[in-house]
Each structure stands twice: as structure tokens, then as C-alpha cells.
Design a protein around this nucleic acid. Structure first.
Lengths: 236, 236
DNA sequence: GAAGGTATCAACCAGAAGGTTGATATAGGG
DNA sequence: CCCTATATCAACCTTCTGGTTGATACCTTC
């Protein structure tokens, strides 16, 4: 577990931002979301675009369990990278199933396309693109574009992970032997986020974040988040 | 005032550290100190080496006024860069004057050599090197070495100010039109220092630091020191 | 000399962050 | 099977930070 994780998914904060901008800028979607997949295969670090906070909360609280596009469904299928919901689930099912009846449909969503990014066959990030009932149905052409974008994002991801900035982050984390979750905390700290945001980013409690921070502080020998950010960018 | 100061002395935190290490490592001194000179020609951002905190406090509280090597004595004399106290002040004076009788001598100091760094003829940093009464008197050879080191430090300073890292700092400060003192605060924030340390570094009260921070927060549109550090190293 | 920018400091408050202890659960190695 | 490492969370307390208001002083510039 540690082995697979000491590179991913930490260090991808701005990568997510840029990808989301790209997708929503090029494709005709009404809402979008992105997340990273942690070592326990749990989606964390959600970032959304024009997606109602209440809808996201509903998903996180309840409906993620029923999601046919949930990343856990695709961790093993390394060949699947772009999935269209309405292709995966037939029309009848979409009428019967509570996921569509009680969640997808009420929020005015017509279809969802999910993009997965992998490194070494391991799923590490995902993107959900929503079209609304007011929009025209998604066509082959749109899916082709999505595949095109996916391909470039996959390329860009590998570049990002090889960049000096990223390796600097790795050097720091390796130097102090931080655990995967601790690395994620450091990543979010380095973005200047308050603990509350870090907690919601990692989908855990404030208490857990504080515990992680305490461990990071002891390992690195500092005593504030600002100092962490400073250390990170002033490696000796 | 603004004009002369929007480059210096901010951004020299690690430069000071390295210089102090160099001087104390190469020259045979018992204590040392370094400082930056701000726009009001006041020494700030002291860093010391083997110098008793109590001695430093005494100097800062009282004796700085009597110091014949005090930087204000040399702001105008752009040709003077390395000064030896015992050459500047004759033996008799050193017996009579309270600065030596009540401060220098009681702390076991035999001689002091001061080095000044300038940019555009403006004094921006100083180094004080102390020899103790237990050490042999400083000779011509030592002064030659000090001059040699000074020359390189002067070169290195110019390099540092031209380095990408420094210009990044400048870009940030210019972008948000920060005042000289605000820039100093940002510099110390970027080192991860708590407000109390920033206050003592700038030789002002905690309240002043907080006011500076509030202004920086409004100008940059953030609301925490960690975010400042993050912004600084993640310029868009 | 009035106005604006800068630098200084005080007092106050609410909320965030840091520090500690202790507890639970789970995965993996020996 | 036990031990360790990891991840999770709660409760508590202290200290630090952020936000606000208001005041003084100095220096330019108009």
C-alpha cells in the first residue's frame, strides 16, 4: 500500500484545476466534478464546477453507493477510461433504479460521462461531466472529443509527475517518511487551506486532520502549517 | 523612499544565514551578528552566532546609541566596507567611554570588525564579527581575509538579487503594491515565522505586525499567513 | 496646510490552530 | 497470534491568528 502510494495522488492540486478548466471549457457540459483516488480507493479532494453544493452533499452522503460510474467499479478495468452512463445502463433500469429516480433525474441531469486517469495501471483521478436535460443528447462526436482530451490529460499527468516541482514535493515527503495520508495533508497545507477545508477535502473529520498535522509536525520538527509551506519551498 | 526600497532588503533571509556561516566558519571569531538595514536606516532582522541573548538585548536596549560601528555612521561613506573598531577608536578612548567600559569589555570582547554590504551605494546589510580577549589580537592577515570574504559576499548579494527566486518575490510584492515594511513581513512570513518572531525580527510590536498583515491580506485577497506562503510559491 | 500614504501601537473578540491524551479499527509482517 | 503502522475520531485546553476600531506620528504631495 505504502509502495503504490508514495507518489500518488499527492501533488496534483493544480493539475486537477487545470483539467477541470479544460474539460468544461471545451466540452458542452452543465456541471462537472473531479476527484483523486486514494490508497483505499476512496475518492477524495473533490473539486466541482457549477455543481450545486447540495447535490454534491447528497451524493457524498448517500448516492455514491449506487453510482454505476463510481471509481471503485473501474479500478480493475485498466482499459476503460471514458464511460458514458447512458451507454452503461439501459433505459429501463434508469427509470426503476433509485439512483436515477431520486438523484440524477431530480437534479436535471440527462447523462454523465466519467473520465479516469491512471498511472501504472492504477486509477488515481477521475472526472465527471454532466449534461442537463435542457441540452442536446451527447453524440459520438462529443465522446470522441472527450477521448481526445482524456489522452492529453493522461500525457500531461505523466509530465506533471516527472516535473521538478513534483519531485521536490516527493523529496520532502520521502525525507521525513510521511505516510500517504500525511502527504495528502501536506499537499493541501501547501495550498494554504485551513484545517476545515483540508478535512472536507480528505473527507474526514477535523480531529483526524489535526492528528495528521501533529504527526507531520513531529516528523519534520516544526510547529505550524506556515512553516511546513516554507520548508516545502525552501528545501536545503 | 518607496523607490529605493522596493527591492531591498526583503528577500535576503537565507542570504544572511549563508553569509554568517561563511564568516564564522572561515574567520577566527568568538561571536557574530548580522542585520539588514531598512528604509529608515534602522537595523532589523538580526541573526546572531554564539552571541549571548542577554548581550544582544543590552545592545538593543541601550548601547546601540553609543556604537561607533553602528550602520548609521556609515550610510554615507560608500567607500567604507570593512571597519575594525580598534583602528577607529584609540586606546585611551576605549578606556574612558562607557560603551567599552560598560558593554564591550564586560562581555569579554577584545575587538569588533564590521562589514557592510551595499547595493547602488545604499547600505543594506551589515555583519559584526567579535574577537574575545582570550584570542590573539586581529592582524592584517585577518583583515585581508575579511576583505576577501566581503568582496565575495558583495558579488553573491548581487547574484541573489538577480536570481529567479528573488525576482519571483519581487513580482509578487509589485503585483500587490506592497509597501517596504509589508514586503519585510511577507519575507518573514514566507520563512514560516510566528507573528511574535516577526515582531522581534522587525523590532516592532506584535500589534504592528498584525496591522501589516491585515493590510497584506486585504491587498492580496487572502486570509491567512499559510495562504501567503502558498501564493508566493505558486504564482500564476 | 490639507490630504493621502505609511508606520506605529492598543484593546478587544471570535475563531483557528497547536498540543495532549486516549480510544478504536484495520492491514501487514514476523 | 501479536505487534506495529496507519488512519480514524473525541474531548479538552492553551495559544495564536484574524478581524475590527481607533489613535498617533511622520513624510510627501498637492
Amino acid at each position: 500500500m505504502q509502495k503504490n502510494d508514495n507518489i500518488y495522488p499527492a501533488g496534483l492540486y493544480s493539475f486537477q484545476d487545470e483539467c477541470l478548466k479544460l474539460l468544461t471549457g471545451v466540452l458542452n457540459v452543465s456541471k462537472a466534478a473531479t476527484y483523486l483516488v486514494d490508497s483505499q480507493r476512496k475518492p477524495i479532494c473533490y473539486k466541482t464546477w457549477q455543481l450545486q453544493p447540495a447535490m454534491h452533499r447528497q451524493y457524498m452522503d448517500t448516492f455514491y453507493k449506487l453510482d454505476p460510474l463510481h471509481p471503485t467499479q473501474f479500478v480493475e478495468q485498466a482499459d476503460i477510461s471514458v464511460v458514458k452512463m447512458n451507454d452503461l445502463v439501459n433505459t429501463q433500469e434508469r427509470y426503476d433504479h433509485p439512483y436515477y429516480r431520486d438523484f440524477v433525474s431530480p437534479w436535471g441531469v440527462q447523462d454523465i460521462v466519467e473520465l479516469f486517469l491512471r498511472v501504472d495501471n492504477q486509477l488515481i483521478a477521475g472526472f465527471a461531466l454532466f449534461t442537463s436535460k435542457q441540452q442536446p443528447e451527447m453524440r459520438m462526436e462529443d465522446i470522441r472529443k472527450a477521448n481526445q482530451l482524456h489522452q492529453f490529460m493522461q500525457f500531461s499527468l505523466e509530465q506533471s509527475l516527472a516535473a521538478p516541482k513534483h519531485s521536490q514535493f516527493q523529496v520532502f515527503c520521502d525525507q521525513y517518511q510521511l505516510t500517504p495520508k500525511e502527504r495528502m495533508v501536506v499537499e493541501l497545507v501547501s495550498q494554504g487551506l485551513p484545517n476545515k477545508s483540508i478535512a472536507s477535502g480528505l473527507d474526514c473529520s477535523l480531529a483526524t486532520v489535526k492528528t495528521h498535522l501533529q504527526h507531520i509536525f513531529t516528523k519534520t520538527g516544526v510547529n505550524s502549517k506556515t512553516e511546513i509551506a516554507s520548508l516545502l519551498y525552501n528545501l536545503h
